[in-house]
Design a protein around this nucleic acid. Structure first.
Length: 423
RNA sequence: GGUGGGGUACCGAAGCGGCCAACCGGGGCAGACUGUAAAUCUGCUGGCUCAAGCCUACGUAGGUUCGAAUCCUACCCCCACCA
């Protein structure tokens, strides 16, 4: 399993005996997820894949939702009522995360089912005195102060560090202890920035008389250009929740991967085997314009997250939006394909007779921030109506331009689509 | 509290009486090439009935002037040094 992670680029570091433990018997291992949002995003995919590989290797994956640590994450003073509300939200978020994880992990497997855990279950009833006595005494403040993350904050007079944040590593270590007691968990995985917290947990379990535990950390992902991974072209977070990021946008996000990144992504985010990845890598070299690797990557990940139907919809929309002309489509098809393209209502009466000036309509529909900008875009050749480039700055839209008597499909550049609905 | 420096478009940064809607760089957008990549190159990047023209803009409010981002006055805010 460690070897598999290494080949896929998922391994940044592991504790000394982790590989041995994983190759001998069945291990229960966990990853913590932040429940401050109700959905995971593509940035969470690395740890998720870590759990997937764990389960595929016959081990038991545990997804820990940090409900308790999430509650104290923000130390600004809150009323009791507010905290209760937050707790409810937190539980909803945890449920949302579980649903998304179910696309990746098998919660029904006979021998090694995936499990969810919420640290609220043990942090909630935890007494401060007990905690300090049983857990706190195993932590050396001297060692905690040496941590890089803490040190940086101490040196920064401005920012400083609150006691709450300082204690965070104790709580995370305590999670490991509880999981080892409750679920026999002996492995924690996480981002490489979690290394210190993970080893702190391993130490705690040992000092409390528990079993030898292990840690595996994943590399932090950056794009070939050194940018943070996980933002769309519009710099929006790409979520796994179809309500937040449609399957079409999700698919497009992956399809737009650069050549320099795509092979790495195939290894990280799909379960394709070495031969398949090698073939696709070869395709990137010999026929990059066909973007086979990108297509495969996008298809695989989209199918896993959004199912076959989600992938179909994304493919259908992609073909029409980037393939040919939208002419000839029925209203129903347009509504379907352009489902998550910004749509603006347009009074039909304005298109009758001489029609309405395109630049004016563009400004109103939010396609351009002003009429001036709209005219500039047209002048520079960046505006397309129903798939055809517009050449006249003073061009108009008339009822002639309506597809199926109802829609105008407009585009700026290659990727920014808009629908005008003259119902 | 004193002295000095400074506040310019999304950001950085020139300009220091008319040639300034404001050099230049970054960012953003569009175009070309290509592959819905990357790199590169080109153009655009205040508004208006955009061709001329007009309007609004250079911390805020006044003033001088035919004419101000540029000079004067007051005020606000930043930064540095001194106390």
């Amino acid at each position: 399993m460690i070897e598999e992670l290494r080949w896929r680029g998922l391994l940044a570091d592991a504790t000394e005996h982790a590989a041995a433990a994983l190759s001998v018997g069945q291990v229960a291992g966990y990853v913590g997820f932040d429940p401050t949002a109700s959905s995971l995003h593509v940035g969470s995919l690395v740890p998720i894949m870590g759990l997937v590989h764990l389960q595929r290797a016959g081990h038991c994956p545990i997804a820990l939702v940090g409900g308790g640590t999430g509650l104290i994450g923000d130390p600004s003073g809150k009323t009791r009522e507010r905290a209760l509300l937050d707790r409810l939200t937190m539980e909803e978020n945890a449920e949302g995360i579980r649903r998304q994880l179910a696309s990746f992990l098998d919660f029904e497997a006979a021998s090694n089912p995936a499990r969810m855990a919420n640290n609220l279950d043990w942090l909630d009833g935890l007494g401060l005195v007990d905690f300090l006595r049983d857990v706190g005494k195993h932590f050396s403040v001297n060692a905690m102060l040496r941590k890089e993350s803490v040190k940086r904050r101490l040196e920064d007079e401005e920012a400083g560090i609150s006691f709450t944040e300082f204690s965070y590593q104790l709580l995370q270590a305590y999670d490991f202890l509880e999981l080892s007691r409750r679920h026999g968990c002996t492995l924690q995985m996480g981002g490489s920035d979690q290394w210190g917290n993970i080893t702190a947990g391993i130490d705690l379990v040992r000092r409390m008389g528990g079993p030898q535990c292990h840690g595996v950390v994943f590399p932090l992902l950056v794009t070939a250009r050194g940018l943070k991974f996980g933002k769309s072209e519009a710099a929006e977070t790409v979520w796994l929740d179809p309500e937040r990021t449609s399957p079409y946008r999700f698919y497009q996000f992956w399809l737009n991967s650069e050549d320099a990144d795509v092979v790495r992504y195939l290894k990280l985010f799909t379960l394709l085997d070495r031969d398949e990845v090698d073939d696709l890598a070869e395709a990137v070299r010999t026929a990059p314009h066909r973007r086979e690797a990108q297509r495969r990557l996008a298809a695989e990940v989209t199918r896993t997250v959004h199912g076959a139907d989600g992938l179909d919809a994304a493919l259908r929309a992609s073909r029409i939006l980037f393939g040919g002309s939208p002419r000839g489509l029925s209203s129903a098809e347009i509504e379907d394909v352009f489902a998550d393209v910004p749509s603006t209502a347009l009074a039909r009466s304005r298109l009758e007779g001489p029609g309405a000036e395109l630049a004016v309509v563009m400004a109103e529909a939010g396609m351009a921030s002003s009429r001036s900008e709209a005219r500039r875009l047209i002048r520079d050749g960046g505006v397309y109506v129903n798939g055809e480039r517009v050449s006249a700055t003073d061009g108009t839209l008339t009822t002639e331009d309506l597809l199926d008597g109802r829609f105008v499909v407009a585009r700026i550049g290659k990727k920014r689509h808009f629908v005008l609905d003259a119902r």
